[in-house]
Write a protein that binds this DNA or RNA. Structure first.
Lengths: 114, 114
DNA sequence: GACGAGCAGTAGCATTGCTACGTATGACGG
DNA sequence: CCGTCATACGTAGCAATGCTACTGCTCGTC
């Protein structure tokens, strides 16, 4: 899979995972890997900046959670995040439907061997 | 739909349309619009550079076709293009399956109204 | 003559994910 | 005590890609 395939869809994926409950960055990476059957194995340099973008956009909120010194930043969906996720799901359905239609829609009627 | 959603998938779409037979850029734009039910309404500044990339990569070949003075550049799939399209279809299936799995896979068991 | 539709193309931009790197803690083996 | 690994967070810089806005040409029509 080319690396660019993910572009524009990562936000929705992160929001979808966060919908199940708050999580920190590292856990999100593992959840995505597990939830996608190994297809998404994202480097930290992809996920952390993405989370910051989401927070800047107001779609997630973060709080520092300190166990014993191992600090981790927990993210959770905001109300706007929930709304955005709904829209993302919708547009993903439309997008994937459209791509599939074009990809599978035009099997040539004649066999190219002629 | 955010503009970035298409990134990385345009090549496959163009190849898929060209699989039905040779076509020129303008016709590809209309075929994509029709084949996607209006979802893909791509500007020329998106399609023409993409076709050049595909040609540079050796996935399509182009020939100038001159009707009466109205020149148009016809594109058709090369052998490598056919192979690439097959791979694209495969990886699209995997990618879309993975996204759908993550997007729909985690409906919360508890109702959030609690 | 003006104007739109068909047809092709480029320059520059913004966004986005990736690579490579840096930092710190706790656990475990030697 | 030291090294190393897994956990956990982060940044800088890069490359790729699609979009906006524009130009240029021909033909048909008003």
């Amino acid at each position: 899979m080319t690396a660019e395939a993910l572009k524009g869809h990562l936000d929705g994926l992160l929001l979808a995972v966060l919908e199940r409950g708050p999580a920190h960055g590292y856990a999100l990476i593992e959840a995505l890997r597990a939830g996608s059957g190994g297809t998404f194995d994202l480097p930290t340099g992809t996920v952390y900046p993405a989370l910051r973008r989401l927070e800047t956009s107001g779609l997630v909120a973060s709080t520092w959670e300190k166990g014993d010194g191992r600090q981790r930043r927990m993210y959770e969906l905001t109300t706007a995040g929930h709304r955005h996720l709904a829209r993302q799901r919708q547009s993903w359905r439309q997008f994937s439907g459209a791509v599939t239609a074009v990809m599978d829609g035009g099997e040539p009627a004649w066999t190219p061997s002629t």
